[in-house]
């Protein structure tokens, strides 16, 4: 735990460079702003405790993500009584710039998608959000999740299929 000033500065840099990615990854699992903040910060604190063990030639975020993922899964397991989900998804289109009907349709789509995403299991939601909203490449996902790129593609495909099933009524 005892780190030099230089090491602390380095850790601060890592936190600042990865805090957004960490928060959004936690949000994908937990669907709640406060929990995502709490768990993503807790993961950084844990990472700080083991910072000496971190191989500097490796990707920091991939190492941090392993800690974060475990904490998120433990949090879900230990908190069966779910907190209400926050509205974590918003439409990219500016509501003022589109006509009222499109705005209503976008709002409805957003609500349905939100509901559908949180009806999926955590792993499907995780990979979909990281790929579709956070734009991780297949290679990055393969590194983060510790699975081959082909498996990433296949998991994404089946996750989209499950999402389509959830949104079936709306898509028709």
């Amino acid at each position: 735990m005892k780190l030099s000033k230089k090491e602390k500065k380095k850790f601060e840099m890592y936190v600042k460079a990865n805090m957004r990615k960490g928060y959004f990854a936690a949000l994908a699992f937990l669907g709640n702003h406060d929990d995502a903040m709490e768990i993503s910060q807790k993961a950084f604190i844990k990472a700080f405790g083991h910072f000496k063990k971190f191989d500097r030639s490796k990707n920091f975020f991939a190492w941090y993500y392993t800690i974060l993922r475990n904490l998120c899964l433990n949090h879900i397991r230990d908190n069966k009584k779910k907190k209400p989900l926050d509205e974590i998804i918003i439409s990219k289109e500016n509501t003022e710039a589109v006509n009222p009907q499109t705005a209503v349709e976008n709002e409805e789509l957003k609500n349905q998608l939100h509901k559908a995403l949180f009806n999926l299991d955590e792993e499907d939601r995780e990979i979909l959000i990281l790929r579709e909203f956070e734009n991780y490449s297949y290679k990055q996902l393969s590194e983060l999740l510790g699975i081959p790129e082909g498996t990433v593609m296949s998991r994404l495909y089946y996750a989209r299929k499950k999402l389509a099933k959830e949104l079936k009524r709306y898509l028709k």
Binding site: E12, V15, K16, M19, R20, Y23, F24, L27, H33, M37, Q41, D86, E87, I88, I89, I90, S91, K92, E93, N106, L109, K110, L113, L128, I129, E132, F133, E134, Y157, R160, K161, L163, A164, L167, L171
Partner: peptide, 27 residues
């Protein structure tokens, strides 16, 4: 077609970004 449609739906959305103050106080 189903895969394309879902991709289109997802492309229209993004995750809500917390305010700048949240990021400023994060570290």
């Amino acid at each position: 077609e189903e895969q394309k449609k879902i991709k289109e739906v997802l492309n229209k959305m993004e995750l809500r970004n917390p305010s700048q103050e949240v990021w400023d106080s994060y570290w």
